[in-house]
């Protein structure tokens, strides 16, 4: 498949801070490419270089097979950008904002369709200051699409949204993908990256620490299933297994902890847990079995969680 963007050896330093440190990747046309990483990992700086908002210190960027030194205005006609924090003029209505931005491009998309798809019809004549966080975020995405771009940059599009609003945006992004647009998504939500992405780059401290499809990344850490449970006593004193990890001490009780254990054999491990519990008169609750995810990949690679 044709690569719409290719980035090699991209670097951007702020004095001594290596915001982007020798990053390389390529993005195939019509796919969702995610940059996943914790806050401050360098995701936003990377996409802002690609959006033309920042200049790289070094590296090579190719758009549509052509190397560029600067994102020129011709290229800006072909991209749509939703920034991490988009601020609009508060006294303008949704319609005026969309029409205003529509006027900045040569190519124009039908804003009625956009408004309908993003469920902003009822708010069309409302001033921006009256919109909720989710509505503002949907407007930011609508504004990013007014020029019917080939490439859409979505920088943490669901941060701060409630689960329902997040789900609605995920569905919309999937629709965008189906319409053939290339989407570059930055997020620190592993569920978001898993649900939406075709290809994921995990970024930490300005470097790409892993890349591939979600399945490839998960397979790469060699984990099988994970059993998670709560225990009200020091379960780890009785159950000796190097794969047992304390995930969280709950705040309500100093003794209650959340444990996770990785296993290739769920049945045997569960049986051992129950046996330990019975013999030592322990109590366990909220047992859940899950498959490994990108959070586990990040944890395995860095020793930290994405939220750290």
């Amino acid at each position: 498949m044709e690569n719409i963007i290719e980035v090699s050896n991209l670097r951007k330093y702020y004095k001594t801070v290596k915001a982007v440190d020798d990053i390389s990747f390529s993005i195939a046309a019509g796919k969702v490419f995610a940059l996943l990483g914790p806050n401050g990992a360098g995701k936003t700086t990377t996409v802002e270089i690609l959006e033309g908002l920042r200049r790289a210190d070094s590296g090579r960027i190719t758009y549509f097979g052509k190397e560029i030194t600067k994102v020129n205005f011709e290229l800006k006609e072909k991209i749509g950008v939703q920034l991490q924090n988009t601020v609009f003029f508060e006294s303008l209505t949704v319609k005026e904002t969309l029409k205003g931005f529509l006027g900045l491009y040569e190519k124009k998309f039908d804003i009625d369709i956009l408004v309908k798809k993003l469920e902003l019809e009822e708010k069309l004549n409302s001033k921006i200051k009256t919109l909720s966080g989710g509505q503002k975020q949907r407007l930011a995405i609508a504004v990013a699409l007014v020029n019917d771009p080939d490439i859409v940059f979505l920088d943490e599009p669901t941060t701060g949204l409630d689960p329902q609003a997040r789900r609605m945006l995920w569905d919309f992004i999937n629709e965008l993908k189906l319409s053939g647009k290339t989407i570059i998504l930055t997020t620190h939500y592993m569920e978001e990256a898993e649900y939406l992405s075709d290809f994921v780059n995990i970024v930490d401290h300005g470097k790409v620490i892993a890349c591939g499809t979600v399945e490839q990344l998960i397979d790469s850490i060699g984990m099988k299933s994970i059993i998670r449970f709560h225990s009200n006593k020091k379960f780890d004193s009785y159950f000796k297994d190097e794969n047992l990890k304390i995930i969280e001490d709950t705040a309500l009780s100093s003794e209650k902890k959340i444990y996770e254990i990785q296993t290739d054999n769920v049945e045997t491990t569960l049986s051992n847990i129950f046996e330990t519990t019975r013999k030592n008169s322990l109590s366990i609750s909220e047992i859940a079995i899950r498959q490994p995810n990108l959070e586990d990949v990040f944890l395995k690679l860095t020793g930290r969680t994405l939220r750290d």
Binding site: G52, L53, E77, I79, L83, V87, F88, Y105
Partner: peptide, 14 residues
């Protein structure tokens, strides 16, 4: 400071 110019500079505006 509020990022309005940043958003505008993502469009073909010099």
């Amino acid at each position: 400071e509020k990022g309005i110019t940043k958003k505008i500079f993502t469009t073909p505006i010099r």
